[in-house]
Amino acid sequence: MMNPRAVFRMVSLASAMVLGLAAVAPAGPFSAIKVVNDRTVTQFEYDQRLLFMQLLRQPGDLNKLAMQTLIDDRLQLSAGDQFGIKLTPEQLRAGMEEFAGRANLDAEKFIEAIGGAGVQPETFRDFVEAGLVWREVIRGKYAAAITIPDAAVDRTMASFTPLTSMMLRLSVIEIPAVGAGREAAMKLAQHLRLQLRAGEDFAALARANSKAASAGRGGAMDWVKLSDLPKDAGLAVRKLQAGGISDVVVLDDKVQIFRVEEIKQETLTPKTQVVDYAELLVPDDAASIANVRSNVDTCNDLYSMAKGLPADRLTRKTVPVSQLPKSVAGALSLLDAGESSTAMTRGGYRVFLMLCRRGPAENELPSRDEVRLQLTNQKLGTLAQIYLEELRSEAIIRTP
């Protein structure tokens, strides 16, 4: 019979060997390297996220950012579970298409491009999924309580200065629509729009139906600045990604359908293009001037002050800066949007001069709805950061 002490030594030695091997064996790619509450981050996920961020040319310390974003993903997905948010396959696919569209690619081509560099489709999908879930969490938690006043929209539009101009390469199907043929042209355009939505080739339909000079080229146009398009055409294409088909654009003498082929941004040389200003003639006494000052925050408020007065007491003009009357050019140059001056008199009245806006021409301005959405998203972004910090502070994050 073997000595019990010898058995004990053999068992101890075997245990030590096993433990020693476990200690030096390298971690597998799917081993957990971080645990966020009850969700894990694997070495494979970290390596993939790091590679993905490198391909996107993200700035900063990518080794640190890759882990931080993966931790945030776990917190955001947990919040989504808490609020019962489940994405449909259609929502996820749309999110992937939206992200890929920033590179002027569809999701399939984007996945193919990053796949060539070693990033798996699941990495892209998981990245988009966490972002979409978080967006729904924030909207559900905060959006209903956010109100953007009209005055805030006015101030934003008054100070808006584009740093770039959107350039588009478009293709067009153009059908004359005048007189008795207008109704038929509208019906044809709507029919063509349905065909395009069903996957018909734009160039072929343009050659067969368009009356524009570009018809022989399949509707292909030269590069055009968004702001140079007619207003209705600009509104129809400004939100489209490359490959997008516009709704039917109805003009006075024709109807058009556009396809966006390419999009690029052209850097603008900062310069003042137009000045929008107002002049209200008020009695030349301190009480009248003080009354206007206390009741006017934007140029639109002047209309209420002028109610019931002769029409010539309030004037509002938008002119190129080079065409400003010398009598007001100097005073306006000292004002920011929403500021006023009462330094001038005219015909026995004090001139309440107010700068409404200084900047690009009107067709380069965003719409009020776009500005309101931008301001809402800014508030949501701030609230999202605060909420994420709360989740981080409450989470149990450990390294196994």
Rank of each mutant, 00 (worst) to 15 (best):
L309F: 08
A311M: 02
D301Q: 06
E262T: 11
K34Q: 12
A204D: 10
D336E: 14
V274G: 00
F52E: 11
A117G: 01
D47R: 15
S165G: 09
D72K: 04
L55P: 08
L388V: 09
R169S: 09
M157N: 09
G101H: 02
L62G: 02
G115K: 01
V260I: 09
A203Y: 01
N363D: 11
W134E: 08
Q43M: 14
N63M: 12
L87Y: 05
Y46C: 09
V119R: 02
A278S: 15
V296C: 03
A25H: 04
A180L: 12
S31P: 01
V128K: 03
S327V: 14
E98L: 14
V319C: 09
A152V: 07
P230K: 09
G243N: 04
F52T: 07
A16H: 00
K379S: 07
E108K: 05
Q323A: 14
A306V: 06
A242V: 07
G84S: 04
A103N: 12
Q91W: 05
R9Y: 13
L70V: 14
I71V: 15
E90F: 11
A16Y: 02
A180Q: 13
A177H: 06
G60Y: 04
A32T: 12
L380F: 02
G243C: 04
L268N: 11
A233L: 08
L375F: 03
R316A: 14
G115D: 04
M53H: 03
G330E: 11
A361P: 00
R135S: 10
A198P: 00
A22V: 07
V137W: 07
E136K: 14
G199F: 11
Y142F: 14
M10N: 06
L355I: 08
N37K: 03
Q120R: 15
R182F: 06
C299L: 09
D253T: 06
D285V: 00
E200K: 10
Y387R: 13
E394S: 11
K141N: 02
G199M: 10
L383N: 01
L77W: 03
D284P: 00
G234K: 04
V119Q: 05
N295R: 15
M1V: 11
G199Q: 11
L229Y: 04
R372P: 07
I386M: 06
V35M: 12
I289C: 05
L332T: 01
R350Q: 10
L281R: 11
E174N: 02
N377E: 12
E108T: 06
I386W: 00
L302D: 02
A198H: 10
L251W: 01
A233H: 03
D253R: 11
Q374G: 00
T147Y: 11
I146M: 10
R182W: 02
W223P: 01
N291G: 10
P59K: 14
E45A: 15
F352E: 05
Q385G: 09
A151Q: 13
L334G: 02
K64G: 03
P310D: 13
D253P: 00
E261F: 03
Y142I: 02
L194N: 13
S367Q: 07
